[in-house]
């Protein structure tokens, strides 16, 4: 059961785990999960979740184009290129 949940989780996380990794990581993950559950004794239902460390003023960017100067280095960083395209195996 535990193994199954972690297998689904690994799938969602795009991780392929070897058998050895599964054993090691699931054990540690369960240990941490149990630690997380210790929060259940905190009475917090009336509290808003904190999603940012600080609440600050509105921040927006003016709608202006500023091209990145070094676009070709971004292409060179890729593993496989075809002309100006990034190349990957076919999506079925």
């Amino acid at each position: 059961m535990e193994q199954d949940e972690w297998a689904v989780t690994a799938e969602l996380a795009a991780l392929k785990l070897s058998e050895g990794e599964k054993k090691r990581l699931v054990k540690q993950a369960e240990q941490m999960r149990k630690l997380y559950l210790s929060m259940s004794s905190a009475v917090v239902d009336n509290l808003e979740p904190t999603t940012h460390a600080s609440v600050v003023k509105n921040r927006v960017r003016k709608d202006e184009v500023k091209p990145f100067k070094d676009v070709d280095t971004l292409l060179d960083a890729s593993n496989e290129l075809d002309d100006r395209f990034f190349l990957i195996p076919n999506v079925l």
């Binding site: 202006e64 184009v65 091209p67 990145f68 676009v71 971004l74 292409l75 100006r84 990034f86």
Partner: peptide, 26 residues
């Protein structure tokens, strides 16, 4: 818009592939 949602790259259509890109939108 002139620029993309979260970076200042051009939001113009029909340009050469991978020209309107920057570290943010990549």
């Amino acid at each position: 818009t002139e620029s993309k949602m979260f970076c200042p790259c051009s939001a113009h259509y029909g340009d050469e592939p991978n020209t309107n890109i920057c570290p943010i939108c990549l």
